[in-house]
Design a protein around this nucleic acid. Structure first.
Length: 724
DNA sequence: GACCTGCTGCGGTTTG
């Protein structure tokens, strides 16, 4: 064993010997050295099965044992994004700590009150907690934070890559600052992350004020060999006997995946239900045992647990048709192959998904990408002719092979989360001055983009009598208002993200899952759900319960959702593909044929040399060559002049009318840089949980900071005009 | 034209 081993505490060395490990992994050696030899913040990046947990905890626990302190509180704080992950990690840590009288305390909504009460009474050892439960501790035990965390040496943030610039990530960062301010000293931060793209952003997330001092420990693990195929399918093919694209893909999946463990990422929950139903049907028809199961967030916990257990169990071939529920987090073991149906929304997600296969020594990672395109007719739209689904899938695979993936966007000002944290700080301290709250959240905390002027506007908005979230005492102290009290008192306050209202779907006394409330439902309606078919028997509107019984037929429900952001680099690569003549080796004959059609159309439309194509007197197509955010900004600008616009990947379909200015004049106007009311054409600006308490001006500010790029608008219009 | 994640305190009753 190495000298790193010698740096660990004796009981830890004993535990390692008991495991029968012949040597420590490279990443473990490096993090042991980094943690034992310095007090630096550290990002540990490795794949899911890379041994990150041990790499961080073996030296951190050693430090706790070898250098005891006399302060009260938990020694180590671990923050994890999933309850299942916390339960998993707690079991692994308990195994290590068993003989060291170091308690391991898992803490989330499903943990019993008695375990929590005991931990509060005598806080020590390792606390593993969700961001929401930690938020609850700050609100309900605001004055005890010092007692609970005075001894805390290190905070470990798991799955760091999943939070970076999300609402929840900002919440975690805010809680870390509030913790350090409460105990009046910095706490070492250790982030555990998958290796994705530019790790500098993970470093700056971890310690924005001292990025250069953050150490990065990245595993150089040899990546598995990759077997890759892209298969094209035509929908709406003529002739009664020709199978539709869905049937064709289902048949191919059935033939090649049966008999082993696999994951099929179908893109949307409705698609999951369609493919799971088709695969179950094929098993029935061939009198074979069922081995294909749906898995998504609207299905009951029981069903999902069942599918996860089947995947983990050897000797029981199982394929899950799933959404991103099975993309990260919990351990389901190694799968034989991954299938992706339809173009994914990000290269980062594709890479995470692919990482689920090829994890065993000598096993290749296998990815089958299925793409559906429409059969062309005389009146097919340019979107179908350009085969944008296929081109995007190809662009993403190429970028994946090059090791690129999307970086986080750090510019959002997150005003919804700022409202949440403002209320939480006031609740924690039992009242605070505006200056104090501003210092905690905006000067020291993660809301650095929020000026004191904007912050004052936020306070005015949520303090307005009709909102009643906060009010000011005579001495100037900010207190919770009547509405603020009600919000903070309810347990639904702790999460910063929005969740839609749902019906519960019940049969024969047990729950199948949930359905978004905006589904049109009626008695006698037939549904496909949880991979089976149902008849709607009762609808209880008050209790939000739907009772169903088995049926022979059905249609899948809709689950809603918002369009995803496609990154500039992906769109740029799509245009490179359309303008090039490559024939990627991983494409099958059908998809190569589609690519050829796409290039032919692109050439014919003349987009090689121009950016605007007049289709008819009032209709034009613009090629923007940039991603969703910039393309959407141009679309809104055009709409503000009364033009009607449809948005696609890198393209806009624009229609003028008799009373509107011409497209050319409108683009010139936009290019001139004159102020434009972008949001006059936008619908609802409220997308996050606490948006409804903000003024229109603040909502506009929030939208333009994260979902639009107004400062690049005039440049984009100029670029389009230069190639008319 | 999409996906995912999370949840307290208290009062009442029962049991040893």
């Amino acid at each position: 064993m190495s000298s790193a081993f010698e740096k660990l505490a004796r009981p830890i060395q004993k535990w390692i010997r008991q495991q029968g490990w012949r040597e420590l992994r490279d990443i473990q050696v490096r993090s042991i050295n980094a943690i034992c030899d310095s007090h630096a913040d550290i990002v540990i990046a490795a794949s899911t099965a890379g041994g990150k947990t041990e790499a961080a905890f073996l030296p951190l626990i050693s430090e706790v044992i070898d250098e005891p302190v006399e302060l009260s509180g938990f020694d180590l704080l671990y923050i994890g994004p999933l309850k299942a992950l916390i339960t998993d990690q707690a079991m692994r840590l308990e195994d290590i700590c068993r003989e060291m009288s170091l308690p391991v305390v898992p803490w989330h909504g499903d943990i019993s009150q008695s375990i929590k009460a005991r931990a509060i009474k005598s806080p020590k050892g390792i606390l593993l907690i969700t961001p929401e439960s930690l938020e609850a501790l700050f609100i309900h035990r605001g004055l005890e934070i010092t007692r609970l965390f005075a001894a805390t040496r290190t905070v470990i943030i798991d799955e760091l890559h999943t939070v970076l610039d999300s609402e929840r990530g900002i919440q975690v960062r805010s809680l870390l600052t509030r913790l350090e301010l409460a105990i009046k000293r910095p706490v070492r931060r250790v982030g555990l992350s998958a290796t994705l793209g530019d790790m500098d952003l993970a470093k700056s997330y971890l310690r924005p004020d001292n990025v250069d001092a953050v150490q990065l420990i990245e595993s150089e693990g040899g990546e598995a060999e990759l077997m890759l195929q892209l298969r094209g399918y035509l929908s709406g093919a003529e002739g009664e006997s020709s199978p539709s694209a869905i049937d064709g893909i289902t048949a191919h999946l059935f033939k090649y995946l049966r008999g082993s463990d696999n994951l099929i990422f179908a893109g949307a929950r409705q698609q999951v239900e369609i493919y799971a139903d088709g695969l179950r049907d094929l098993c029935d028809k061939e009198h074979l045992p069922l081995e294909f199961y749906p898995h998504h967030a609207s299905l009951s916990r029981e069903h999902r647990d069942f599918v996860e257990r089947r995947l983990k169990k050897p000797g029981q071939p199982t394929t899950a048709v799933c959404t991103s529920t099975l993309e990260l987090g919990i351990d389901i073991g190694d799968v034989n192959s991954v299938a992706q149906i339809g173009a994914p929304f990000s290269v980062a997600a594709l890479r995470q998904r692919l990482g689920r296969s090829g994890r065993r020594e000598g096993q290749p990672a296998i990815l089958r990408q299925y793409v559906v395109e429409s059969k062309l007719t005389a009146d097919s739209s340019f979107v179908d002719r350009l085969r944008l689904n296929l081109v995007r899938s190809t662009a993403m695979i190429d970028l994946l092979l090059e090791g690129w993936c999307e970086p986080p966007k750090p510019d959002a000002i997150h005003l919804s989360t700022l409202v949440h944290q403002t209320l939480s700080v006031i609740a924690q301290l039992g009242g605070a001055s505006a200056t104090t709250v501003y210092k905690i959240l905006c000067k020291e905390g993660p809301f650095r983009q929020v000026t004191s002027h904007i912050f004052a506007d936020v306070l005015r908005a949520i303090g307005a009598p009709e909102m009643g979230l906060i009010e000011q005492s005579n001495s100037g102290l900010l207190l919770l208002g009547p509405m603020g009290e009600r919000l903070v008192e309810h347990y639904s306050f702790f999460a910063v993200f929005q969740t839609p209202e749902e019906y519960r779907l019940v049969t024969d006394g047990y729950e199948l899952g949930t359905l978004p409330i905006d589904n049109v439902l009626f008695l006698g309606m037939l549904l496909i759900f949880s991979g089976r078919r149902w008849l709607v028997q009762q609808i209880h509107d008050q209790e939000k319960i739907i009772v169903v019984q088995p049926a022979k037929a059905g249609v899948p429900p809709t689950f809603g959702g918002n369009p995803g952001d496609i990154h500039d680099t992906v769109i740029e690569r799509m245009f490179t593909l359309l303008e090039g003549d490559s024939r990627p080796v991983y494409m099958d004959a059908v998809s190569l044929g589609m690519l050829k059609e796409a290039r032919f159309t692109y050439e014919q439309m003349g987009f090689h040399s121009k950016s605007v194509l007049g289709v008819s007197e009032h209709t034009s197509i613009i090629s923007t060559r940039v991603g969703t955010v910039k393309t959407a900004t141009l679309a809104l600008a055009l709409k503000s002049f009364g033009l009607s616009v449809e948005q696609y990947d890198g393209f806009l379909l624009v229609e003028t009318a008799a009373e509107t200015p011409s497209l050319q004049a409108t683009l010139e106007n936009i290019a001139s840089g004159d102020a434009i009311d972008l949001l006059s054409g936008a619908g609802n600006l409220m997308s996050e949980k606490f948006h409804s308490y903000l003024s229109t001006n603040l909502l506009a500010l929030d939208a333009t900071s994260s979902r639009l790029a107004p400062h690049l608008l005039s440049d984009l219009a100029t670029k389009v005009l230069s190639k008319v």
